[in-house]
């Protein structure tokens, strides 16, 4: 699953960019693009639509990335991971604060791979947590809608809760729709008729 991640490395220094790319490919992430910073960076990133952007914490183009992360919606947001050159304390503090900062420079090339693995694993975990949270929230909203629809049916048709749910499910199956969609339509219509 990790191999499908599209990773963009913003790095002007050829040798460093090559080290990072090789480490990524070694680690099983084949979809890596390297971009030098340029005035067209913002557009290039939008076009490439990466899952992760790797950029040095002290890179002057960080402000451009900032705009992109605000502009795009949360799920498609490119996440910048800041690869710090010098400051180990800072990277610890940043990780604590929810940023992913990793010391790369000065390390042996063979250290880059485990460091990035940890970083990307952490990123995946955060994405997963976010999508689980979203799913839980959606389920809660759905259940409330279905409860309201059941209530409407119970009142209008004088049926029990169970019967109301069966009616909803039957209507959904007949129409080839989801129960939540039928319930939503019912609730919307009822609101209109009120």
């Amino acid at each position: 699953m990790e191999t499908t991640l599209k990773i963009l490395v913003v790095e002007a220094e050829r040798e460093r960019a090559r080290d990072i790319t090789e480490a990524l490919v070694d680690g099983g992430w084949a979809n890596v693009t390297v971009m030098e910073s340029s005035v067209g960076l913002a557009r290039a990133i939008v076009d490439a639509d990466p899952d992760i952007v790797l950029i040095d914490i002290s890179h002057p183009d960080r402000d451009t990335l900032e705009q992109l992360s605000i502009a795009s919606d949360a799920r498609s947001r490119p996440v910048a991971m800041f690869v710090d050159r010098t400051d180990a304390d800072l990277s610890q503090a940043a990780i604590g604060a929810g940023l992913s900062a990793y010391v790369v420079d000065g390390l042996q090339k063979n250290r880059i791979k485990p460091v990035l693995q940890t970083a990307i694993a952490r990123f995946n975990m955060m994405v997963k947590m976010q999508s689980e949270l979203d799913a839980a929230k959606r389920a809660l909203v759905d259940r409330k809608t279905i409860d309201r629809a059941k209530g409407l049916l119970m009142q209008a048709r004088g049926v029990t809760e169970e019967e109301a749910y069966s009616l909803l499910r039957k209507a959904a199956m007949d129409q080839g729709r989801k129960v939540i969609d039928v319930a939503q339509a019912l609730v919307t219509s009822a609101d209109l008729l009120r």
């Binding site: 914490i57 002290s58 002057p60 960080r62 400051d87």
Partner: peptide, 15 residues
Amino acid sequence: QPSWSALRDMLALGH
């Protein structure tokens, strides 16, 4: 500081 983002992070992190 190299960028406003970096300045913001360094301030927020207490550096």
